Simulated scan of single mutants.
Amino acid sequence: MDRGLVTLAGTRSGATLLEEAAEHAVGANADLVLLSSFTQEEAEHDLEVLNRIDTSEHGRFGELMSTELAEEVGEQIAHNVLSAYDVEYTVVGAITDHRIGRRIIDEAERHDCDHVFLLSKPHSRIGDLGEAARRVVRHFDGFTTLGRERDPERHLARLRGDGRDYDVVINY
């Protein structure tokens, strides 16, 4: 592996997959590209919540665009999970529609990646892959490592509109 693309999930399973990718990258002396993506609806919701709680004069979030929010969240995940690894990485923020599989392949090709690490959402049948995983496995010209999402609850990677769970720091 020369460069791997890892899709960030903000879940325990996502952290495990990122750690595995980091171990692989360290062993191969490779770089990682971390794809942090939201749908437009998720990004708009999170920006609205941030703007409500960011009342300071020099608010940090007021001017953020959706892709910048995705990058910021990706940077937080990377910082928390990869601090123990000596690996070079780049975070790419993306706003996607529901065709995330195509976006993963496009970003992998754009960044000259030869390995993709992603989670497959759990389905009722064993071996049944989610749409994105199916597309990547079928169409990506390189190695693919699939992890099974076992804990789909995001842990403070996404902002919630209730209570005080507005911290973007990920705690596992």
Rank of each mutant, 00 (worst) to 15 (best):
G74C: 07
H123C: 00
D86E: 15
D31G: 05
H24D: 10
L156E: 11
R158P: 00
R150D: 08
L18S: 06
E75H: 09
F38S: 01
E41N: 11
V92M: 03
L17H: 03
L159F: 00
F143Q: 15
T55D: 10
R154L: 02
R164I: 09
G147Y: 01
R60E: 15
A132G: 09
S56K: 08
G130R: 06
I77Y: 11
R110G: 01
Q76T: 02
E42P: 03
L146K: 05
S36G: 06
E153M: 10
H139M: 12
R110L: 10
N51P: 06
D97W: 01
V26S: 10
R52F: 06
V91P: 06
E75Q: 15
G27C: 06
A15W: 00
M65Q: 12
L5D: 08
I95Y: 04
H79L: 11
E107T: 14
A25M: 04
H123Y: 14
F140G: 07
G14P: 07
L119K: 04
T145I: 08
D167C: 12
E88T: 15
G163E: 07
I53Y: 08
T7R: 14
T90P: 04
S124A: 13
G147L: 04
R60W: 09
L82D: 10
G161Y: 04
L69M: 10
D106C: 00
T11Y: 00
D165Q: 15
G163D: 10
G27A: 12
E19G: 07
L8A: 02
F143M: 13
L5A: 08
